[in-house]
Simulated scan of single mutants.
Amino acid sequence: MGKKHTAQSLLDADEFEIQPHQQYARSLGPRGNHQHEVEFLDGTKKLVTMPPRFRNLVWVKRGHFVVVDPSLGTVSEKVGGEIVQVLFPKHIKALQQAGQWPAEFSHQTATKDTEHHERSDDDDDDNDDNDDDLFVNNNRPVLSESDSSSDEDED
């Protein structure tokens, strides 16, 4: 299966169906060596592997939802399965409409969408400069306005 076919199969929401032995999980972040820590519906946390067909094609970040097959990728007792599908927002929306999305994850996706919506509303309402949103470079010393004016006075 080529990269083009793999990418297309990932994006096709119509063809996606979860198998009975597969489980929904939320990513807690990458742990290196193509492994990700995920949290299942029951709250258990395990390491799962990213199969070679997804590597350098899909990036799974903290908070993303995936489908895990626990019967695959059990090379050691630390690894609890393999990621078989990365769920994009349109996949989640289709699963919610079909009534197949777990209620445990519905609250988390709704909260994330609400926070994003509230944040964008706040940005529209306030045209003030919000320093909290700006990137802070911790490698450079922070000079306040009083420090810079005192330096100019000394010259």
Rank of each mutant, 00 (worst) to 15 (best):
R62G: 05
R62K: 13
R62E: 15
R62P: 00
R62I: 11
G63W: 04
G63V: 06
G63F: 04
G63R: 05
G63P: 04
H64M: 12
H64D: 12
F65I: 03
F65T: 01
F65Q: 00
F65A: 07
V66W: 01
V66N: 03
V66M: 02
V66A: 07
V66I: 12
V66C: 07
V67K: 04
V67I: 07
V67Q: 04
V67F: 00
V68A: 07
V68R: 05
D69V: 05
D69F: 04
D69Y: 05
P70A: 07
P70K: 03
P70G: 00
P70S: 02
P70T: 05
S71A: 13
S71Q: 13
S71M: 13
S71T: 14
S71Y: 10
L72N: 05
G73P: 07
G73M: 04
T74I: 07
T74R: 14
T74S: 08
V75F: 07
V75Y: 08
V75M: 08
S76L: 08
S76D: 10
S76W: 10
S76T: 14
E77Y: 08
E77G: 12
K78E: 15
K78G: 06
V79D: 08
V79P: 01
G80L: 09
G81S: 04
E82H: 00
I83Y: 01
I83E: 05
V84C: 03
V84I: 05
Q85G: 01
Q85D: 02
V86I: 04
V86P: 01
V86T: 12
V86L: 01
V86A: 08
L87E: 02
F88L: 11
F88H: 12
F88N: 12
F88V: 07
P89E: 02
K90W: 06
K90A: 10
K90C: 05
K90Y: 03
H91P: 04
I92G: 02
I92N: 06
I92C: 04
I92A: 04
K93N: 07
A94P: 01
L95S: 03
L95F: 14
Q96D: 01
Q96E: 13
Q96A: 06
Q96I: 13
Q97I: 13
Q97L: 15
A98S: 14
A98K: 15
A98F: 12
G99H: 09
G99C: 06
Q100H: 11
Q100P: 00
Q100M: 06
Q100C: 08
P102S: 11
A103S: 11
E104G: 05
E104M: 11
E104V: 15
F105K: 09
F105N: 07
F105V: 07
S106L: 10
S106T: 12
H107K: 15
T109N: 10
A110M: 07
T111P: 00
K112W: 11
K112G: 03
D113W: 10
D113G: 02
T114E: 14
T114W: 11
T114P: 00
E115P: 00
E115F: 05
H116I: 11
E118P: 00
E118F: 11
R119P: 00
R119I: 06
S120Y: 00
D122Q: 13
D122F: 04
D122A: 14
D122K: 13
D122R: 14
D123Y: 11
D123L: 15
D123V: 10
D123T: 09
D123R: 13
D123E: 12
D124R: 13
D124G: 10
D124I: 14
D124A: 14
D125C: 06
D125H: 05
